[in-house]
Amino acid sequence: MRPHRRVTRRAKAALVAGFGTALLAGCGAGGELKSAGRAPTAVGPARLWPQLPPASAAPYDYGEGATARILGITVPHDDVREVDPVAVLQADLLATTSRSSGSDELPADTVRKITACRTAPTACPVLQPYYRDLTGDGRDDMVLGVRRSDGRLSVRVYMAEAGRLTRIMAVSDPVISVELAGWDVIMRVPSTIAGYEYRTAWSWDDHQRAMLPTRDEILRKAPETAPSGRPSAEPSPEPTMAPPTLTASAGRR
Rank of each mutant, 00 (worst) to 15 (best):
L180Y: 03
D205C: 01
A181L: 15
L212G: 07
S191R: 02
D184F: 07
Q208P: 00
Y198G: 01
T200V: 15
D206K: 06
I218Y: 09
W204Q: 02
P190F: 06
R215D: 15
P190T: 12
M187T: 03
W204I: 01
T192P: 01
W202M: 02
R209V: 14
A210H: 06
P190G: 06
G195C: 13
Y196T: 02
L180H: 05
E197G: 04
P213K: 08
A210G: 09
V178P: 00
T214Y: 13
D184G: 06
P213I: 06
Q208L: 09
H207L: 13
I186Y: 12
D216A: 10
E217W: 10
V189N: 01
M187P: 05
E179S: 09
T214Q: 12
V178W: 00
V185Y: 03
R209I: 06
D206R: 07
W202E: 00
S203I: 03
D216F: 10
G195T: 08
A210V: 06
S203G: 06
V189S: 02
I218C: 14
G182P: 08
D205P: 02
V178L: 04
T214R: 13
Q208N: 07
M187Y: 01
A210L: 08
R199W: 07
L212K: 07
Y196V: 03
E217M: 12
D205M: 04
Y196I: 02
P190V: 10
H207E: 14
S203V: 03
D216K: 08
G182W: 09
W204S: 01
S191C: 11
M211P: 14
E179A: 13
I193H: 05
Y196E: 05
H207W: 12
I193P: 02
T214P: 10
